[in-house]
Structures are given as structure tokens and as C-alpha cells.
Design a protein around this nucleic acid. Structure first.
Length: 469
RNA sequence: UCCCCGGUAGCUCAGUGGUAGAGCAAGCGGCUGUUAACCGCUGGGUCGAUGGUUCGAAUCCGUCCCGGGGAGCCA
């Protein structure tokens, strides 16, 4: 395998020598013929948003037989000199001295990726071919850059990346329905004398599931390494059919020791700003495309977030703001104690603040058992970061570090403390205040690109009834 | 899971009871340092499936399947 060739990105950046031929490999986007005796073949290898224009003269030996038959999607290997382009549209182009066809397209009429705009809904039905489009190619590059920036942020701030397990026996309470992991024979399940399924005979000797969150596990590492985070896949078996939910998605979950909710909110804000700032400088071409075709004003939106303070408000203040909202007809009436509905979150971040809002200190009754009870006894140190256009992008809390309070919270919710024995141990041996949050990676990508649906923010989306690819 | 909207050519859609259409794509021809190229011609359809109403159904009704939007749940 010869990988010595140049990438399209490198050529367009002017990295190719002007006095010697280079080889570029990729897939044909379009072909236009000129009777002056040349064809223009636009070649993409995914390395950059823009394709390389290959100018193929009719004097090439395979011109009639092959080059005039090239259609969108053909794989080719082009060799030639890189010259400044005499026409507008690209800084450099290739004067081809050879254009070899590596792979033909069987039937050009039915090749799904045509040189025209497609709907994102259609592209989801050809998930294996959609990375060849401008929009999914750009989203893929932005996804990579986001991930790199997130890792870089944590690394530079002294965090350790902890790989929490994907198979787990504990469910982070309230985080949603679980996918079961089992090697039992479904057609012939072992039974206990009482007639129950005998999971003691299953692979792990007990019930096991795909993780819904690495939080509980990463807390254990936080209480030894101080600053840690997870970045990996998580799974929810909820029958959710919305533009914001996936059955399999990636989540970033930092956890910091000797820290409270305010430290947590500061960390969330810094992480988002750093990430967007890096994205703006490293993915200009792709963002320009999203700004032009997907969401007008996207770049200005990201710049505004980098340059402004997030709004912080207590849950109580948020309720007051919503109650004062004149001319807003909420489907769900607002009063202290309710969980904020999508319409409420949307009002706060899109109409009231017009930027990300961190809502803190929610009523205890609507939040999870591990969240730290505040001194007022009726709220917990929980926070949600709400972003315009996407809603809740981060959910987090200061964790309850006091064993007796934790036990009380579990008891109030009817949770078996034996089931969380190891988690309780963390409060028995050197407990400290600590806090963390979960950042939905696909939601962040959707927000960063203007894509309205997280199904376009992950390569192969898994949703109820859909795992074909 | 609930509510709403859709499913017609490879793609995007029009057609709302009387012989199935357009643009793009594809094929052929013309023209052109072209770049969402342009001009002409041609091929291409079980109108999601199924049952019903009707002289006649893409069109009206029932059921089912699939897609999307919203809600709930959450990241």
C-alpha cells in the first residue's frame, strides 16, 4: 500500500512541490467536460472540505475509454503537477499526467450520493455512504476536532482520562432503562426453584447491563486521583423518538474532588468555551459551510459563547423568571417544585438570556439520590446547562459525600443500600466533597454545527427500531 | 409510549375521484477553463403495504409498516 501521496488538504494548503508530479487518491465528486479537450474532475479524499480540481487532458491514453465514463463516487488515483489555478474556485489544481481508475461505480443512476443537495432524512437511510457528502464529511471532521479539544482541555488542566466499564451491574439510578447483557439461552432460560430466571448461571453470575453512565465508577477514581473524566459510549434503552436522543451515545463526565457546585459550574463553562474556541480556529472551512447552509449565524453564535459569561441562576430564580414571562403561554404551568419542561428551558436560554444558562439548586424531590442535599433541606446541589436550540446539554451535581445523608436519600427513594455497597464505601473511607457533570457529545456536536438532529452527529445512529448499519 | 405531518421516477417534489408530471440525476448529442455549468433529445413508476367504497382510486375510508416534527424521559 502506497501512502506516500498527498492529501487534498495538503495540496490546497500549498504543501505540494510545484516542480514535480504528485499523486492524490480519492473519490470523484463531479466531472465536467470541455470540448477544448479537457475534463475537470473534482476529487475528494475527506481531508478537507474543498475538493481538488484535477484537469485531465484528452491526450491521456484512457481519456475516451475511462475518464469520460467517470461519475460521482468513482475511486481514482491522480498524478500530475500542482499549479496555481487560473480560474476562480480553488487556489491550486492538478494538471494530470495520469488518472487511474481504482474502483468504478456499478450503476451511476442508482448511486445514492449525487452531486446535489440531499435531505438529511434520506442520508440516514444510506448511513454507509453518507460520509461522502459535504455535510456528513464536515460533521465528522468537526466531531474529531471537538473530541481532541476536549481531551486537550482536560490534559492541560491535570485531569486523568478514566475508562469506566461499558458492562455494569449497577444502574445509575434514574438514568433510564437498561440494555441487558446476557449469554443465557433465550429459548431455554434457567430457573430458580422459585421460578425466577436464575441469573447466577449467567456469564457474570448476576444480572448485567450496558452502562447508562460512568459516573458512579468515575467517582471512585476521583476520590484517589482528584481530577478525572470519562469519555466513552453510553446506552439508554428508552423508547425516545426525538431529535435529541440516541440509544447509543457518547458522554464526557468529569469529576473533581474537594469541589462544590460552583466549582462544577465553572468547570463546565470553561470546558465549553475552550472547546468552541479551538473549534473556531481549527475548523474554519467546515464551520463556514455549516454557517452558510445549515444555520445562519452559527460562527457568530459560537464566538458569542466563547466571549461572554454564562448566566447562572438558582432554580428558584428561574421559576420566578418564568412566572414573570409576559405573553408566554406555557403548556405546563410554572410553580416551585416542578421539573422544568422543554418549553421552560427553551424560554430561559433562547428568549430570556439568549445564551447558555446554568440553572442550579433544584428541588430535592425531582433529582437523583446521589445529589448533595443543601442546607435548606428541600433542594439539592444540582445543575443543568441549557443552550439555545438544543436545550439541556449538561446535567451535573455536587455529590452527597455524607454517608448518613446519602443513606437517608436512598431510603426515601426505596433504593437497596446493599446494592450500592461499594459506592457507600467511598463515603466511609476518606470522603470529601466532590462534584461532576455529564456532557452529551452528540448534543455538543449538533450545537456546534447547527445540525438539528443528533442522528446526524454520530456516524451510525442507534434509535428505537434502527440498528441496520 | 402519546399527539401531529408525511410516504408518487435514483433524489427533491407537484398532482386531492376520470389516460402518472416537473426539476435535478442518468444515457445520447451540442457548446463551453468548467466549478450546483448551460442547451436539445431519450429512457426511467406495482403512486409504502393491505382490505374496503366506487362505473372508475395516487386521490376517499379502515388496518398495518416506514420516515419526520413535537411531548414525556434525559445527555
Amino acid at each position: 500500500m502506497d501512502n506516500s501521496g498527498f492529501s487534498v488538504r495538503g495540496v490546497l494548503a500549498g504543501e505540494a512541490p510545484g516542480d514535480a508530479p504528485v499523486t492524490v487518491k480519492g473519490w470523484v465528486r463531479t466531472r465536467r467536460d470541455s470540448r477544448a479537450g479537457i475534463s475537470f474532475v473534482h476529487l475528494s479524499d475527506g481531508s478537507s472540505f474543498h475538493p481538488l480540481q484535477v484537469v485531465a487532458p484528452s491526450t491521456l491514453p484512457n481519456y475516451e475509454a475511462e475518464i469520460l465514463r467517470l461519475s460521482a463516487g468513482c475511486a481514482v488515483e491522480a498524478t500530475g503537477r500542482i499549479v496555481p489555478s487560473p480560474a476562480r474556485g480553488q487556489p491550486f489544481e492538478m494538471q494530470a499526467s495520469a488518472l487511474r481508475v481504482v474502483g468504478w461505480v456499478d450503476d451511476p443512476e442508482t448511486y445514492p450520493i449525487q452531486p446535489k443537495p440531499h435531505t438529511l432524512e434520506f442520508l440516514r437511510e444510506v448511513a454507509h455512504l453518507r460520509p461522502r457528502t459535504n455535510v456528513i464529511g464536515a460533521a465528522t471532521r468537526v466531531r474529531h476536532t471537538l473530541a481532541q479539544a476536549i481531551h486537550r482541555f482536560f490534559d492541560r488542566n491535570g485531569f486523568f482520562w478514566v475508562n469506566t466499564p461499558i458492562i455494569t451491574a449497577s444502574d445509575a439510578e434514574g438514568a433510564g432503562a437498561l440494555f441487558r447483557v446476557s449469554t443465557l439461552d433465550l429459548a431455554n432460560l434457567p430457573r430458580t426453584p422459585a421460578g425466577e430466571i436464575d441469573f447466577a448461571q449467567d456469564f457474570f453470575g448476576r444480572e448485567a447491563f450496558l452502562t447508562v453512565s460512568g459516573q458512579l465508577n468515575v467517582e471512585a477514581y476521583c476520590l484517589a486521583l482528584t481530577k478525572v473524566y470519562t469519555f466513552g459510549p453510553t446506552f439508554r434503552a428508552e423508547n425516545s423518538n426525538t431529535s435529541r436522543h440516541l440509544a447509543e451515545f457518547w458522554m464526557i463526565e468529569p469529576e473533581i474532588a474537594f469541589a462544590d457546585l460552583s466549582d462544577n459550574a465553572t468547570l463546565a463553562e470553561r470546558l465549553l468555551k475552550y472547546t468552541f474556541e479551538n473549534l473556531l480556529s481549527e475548523r474554519q472551512e467546515d464551520l463556514a459551510f455549516f454557517d452558510e447552509r445549515i444555520e445562519k449565524g452559527l460562527i457568530a453564535k459560537l464566538e458569542r459563547i466563547v466571549g461572554s459569561e454564562f448566566v447562572r441562576m438558582d432554580y428558584g430564580e428561574a421559576v420566578a423568571v418564568l412566572e414573570r414571562a409576559k405573553g408566554e403561554k406555557f403548556e405546563f404551568p410554572v410553580k416551585w417544585g416542578i421539573d422544568l419542561q422543554s418549553e421552560h428551558e427553551r424560554y430561559l436560554t433562547e428568549k430570556y438570556a439568549k445564551k447558555p444558562v446554568i440553572v442550579m439548586n433544584y428541588p430535592k424531590a425531582i433529582k437523583a439520590f446521589y445529589m448533595r442535599v443543601n442546607d435548606d433541606g428541600r433542594t439539592v446541589a444540582a445543575m443543568d446547562v441549557l443552550a439555545p436550540g438544543i436545550g439541556e446539554i449538561i446535567g451535573g451535581s455536587q455529590r452527597e459525600e455524607r454517608l448518613e445523608v446519602l443513606d437517608q436519600s436512598m431510603a426515601e427513594r426505596g433504593i437497596d443500600r446493599e446494592h450500592y455497597a461499594w459506592y457507600r464505601d467511598l463515603r466511609r473511607y476518606g470522603t470529601v466533597p466532590h462534584a461532576g457533570f455529564g456532557l452529551g457529545f452528540e448534543r455538543t456536536l449538533a450545537y456546534s454545527t447547527g445540525l438539528a438532529n443528533v442522528r446526524d452527529a454520530i456516524p451510525f445512529p442507534r434509535t428505537p427500531g434502527n440498528a441496520r448499519y
